[in-house]
Nucleic acid binder design. Structure first.
Lengths: 369, 369
DNA sequence: TTGTAAGCGTTATCAG
DNA sequence: CTGATAACGCTTACAA
């Protein structure tokens, strides 16, 4: 591989000049610049990034740390980050870890020196404090900061508002006994969604009943298993709010096996609006979160800090969540055929495709802040 | 951030010794080693990777280049790569590009110098040649090499065999008119699947009829649109093989709207076995491809070459694809309830969970090679 | 506008 | 076993 010295020699200039050409320093005449560029092209020269970042202390890369790379939600987040990074000419280093506060620290250590900034989604409150400490001396954007104000950049989805809207919608449909299939204990998103559930009950004059809360872990199989718990309840809830779509899918599947009709016997609502939600039978009413633009926004929030290598201050942005009404909750669905398939798979985050699901905006009013 | 010099000074040794401690060179006494380590820990020292790779010419990172980061298949591939990389202490740099031969070259250029090896999934034959040239001087593993023998490492899924098995199964069920919903023109996977479709027809004494082939682009919406084409055919095909699951989902959805019963009026079969396939109504018969272990295997195939920075030779591995029979093809499904939800979402690639779908092994007999 | 030269923080070579 | 010291390929004052 050709080095800066080869180009300099071949072009009959100094290495400093070559360097300037590649750094747009503009302190070089147009003539020599083009000459150098042509030599460089012929030699297939490109600045060595290790040498470059050794002296500049910048890597032009950002790290992404997620609890696990499984599932559509995370994959969409990564896609959004990648999209934005490509645009900003940043590289993306992805890394997953497995939920304990211990490994998150080692994951960060492995990334150290290779990135200018970090986007991280924290699984629980424990890991949260470890990250917070790190964030005081490094640019970090948190993807789910929980309810308390973080000391770093933070981007959250309107978990509370979205859950509130969903449960409020169920209550307004006349359901008096509404169950919840919760996410993992300690999971920040799950906690906020549960909080939204409870407050929506209260707002509708419904008493909170611990017996109506079933624990889940965000997986389809936990949703499948939860069906038995709901079936056992007396009285049986006429509606269930699931803390994510995967669990709702498992639950729907189990209910079908048990010949419990949805929405007639039990109305179901999910959270996330993953692509499948639209294609289930019945189509799933859920809370839409635009995971792709979450990733995009995170990168854009991080970048100014990454560029200056200054810890991100406590700015916070909340991404709205909107209720998408489909068949599974039993509400009348506007339009015919519900425009199945009309939703483009490859919608770009900046221009979400329109579709005919009824959407009720929620969040972005800062209720979580 | 502490440097090697700080540690050396503090520990009263030379920088060479500190370096040796961190490189397990073993030429250092146990006593000094532990002493140095404790000092390093106190100073929170960790070798600067830029400086390190500047001199060693190794980055301990590999690049992953995919056509687009959308969809469950790709996200599972990345997960597999990440899993294996974590184990091997390699970092993963992901990057997507948008299908033209031009951008794939620029994507590679952007990665150059930052990675020791590259895993790339080529969209079409054009980009293929660009990659091939690059692969002669850099460790590369191709994820879908097509039918011709590549000059680099290659890992492919048994597209031909999987498609053959699926269509053969439909034919054996008595279908005489079997349509195909094809993938994008020029897409290597799609071509192989179409080839398997045709050969399976021939093997069952069915004439190939161009009119039964409908073009798609792997998206749900293209599957949705294709329904009209199939409905218009005379005679209408009694079965359709879709080149991937997303299109099958769109097709199922459109057929339901049109009140065409599946599988009674039309049997449907997909390809990939994405997680959703199991939960559709009717559950989708499809060809399982373990995307996660595809990623895993790719990394393991690449690593020896990445470590030595030697171009990967023409070794080739084919991952088997197996037919998973569910309700949508109309064949009797063994067992009751089909064990919905029994399939763990978080199955690890090394130990896929067992489930009661009927599975017929296909591929791995090298028919694609 | 261009060149010279001093590092950036490591690893590798060669003496001790 | 340990210590000097020369690279690695680049950016950036400082000079010209």
């Amino acid at each position: 591989m050709a080095t800066i010295r080869d180009v300099a020699r071949e072009a009959g200039v100094s290495i400093a000049t070559v360097s300037r050409v590649f750094n747009q320093t503009a302190l070089v005449s147009e003539g020599t610049a083009t000459h150098v560029r042509s030599i460089a092209a012929r030699l297939d020269y490109w600045p060595n990034s290790a040498a470059r970042s050794l002296i500049t202390h910048r890597t032009n890369a950002i790290g992404v740390l997620l609890p696990d790379l499984y599932g559509e939600f995370f994959s969409e987040v990564i896609r959004g980050i990648d999209l934005a990074a490509r645009q900003e000419k940043y590289q993306v280093l992805v890394s997953s870890f497995h939920a304990s506060a211990e490994t998150i620290v080692s994951a960060i250590r492995a990334l150290r020196g290779r990135i200018d900034g970090l986007i991280v989604m924290v699984p629980d409150a424990d890991a949260h404090t470890a990250i917070q400490e790190f964030a005081t001396r490094f640019p970090v954007v948190l993807l789910n900061p929980g309810a308390n104000a973080p000391e770093c950049g933070a981007l959250s989805i309107a978990n509370y508002d979205g859950a509130f809207a969903a449960v409020d919608h169920l209550a307004k449909l006349g359901h008096r006994s509404i169950g919840i299939l919760r996410g993992p204990l300690g999971n920040l998103d799950a906690e906020e969604r549960a909080r939204g559930y409870r407050d929506a009950l209260a707002a509708n004059g419904l008493a909170w009943d611990e017996a109506l809360e079933v624990g889940g872990d965000f997986t389809e199989s936990s949703g499948f298993q939860a069906a038995a718990d709901f079936a056992r309840m007396r009285p049986r809830p006429s509606a269930v709010f699931c803390a994510n779509d995967y669990m709702a899918i498992g639950l729907l599947s189990a209910l079908r096996d048990a010949e419990v009709r949805v929405p007639e016997d039990m109305a179901i609502c999910g959270f996330d609006d993953i692509a499948i939600a639209h294609y289930l039978t019945p189509a799933l009413t859920t809370v839409r979160v635009d995971a792709c633009s979450l990733g995009e926004r995170a990168l854009h929030q991080l970048l100014p800090f990454a560029r200056t290598r200054r810890p991100a201050d406590g700015q916070r942005e909340v991404l709205p969540a909107s209720l998408v009404v489909r068949r599974s909750c039993g509400a009348p669905v506007p339009g015919t055929g519900e425009a199945r398939g009309a939703r483009s798979r490859r919608r770009t985050p900046s221009s979400p495709s329109h579709h005919r699901d009824e959407r009720l905006a929620a969040g972005s009013d800062g209720a979580t802040a």
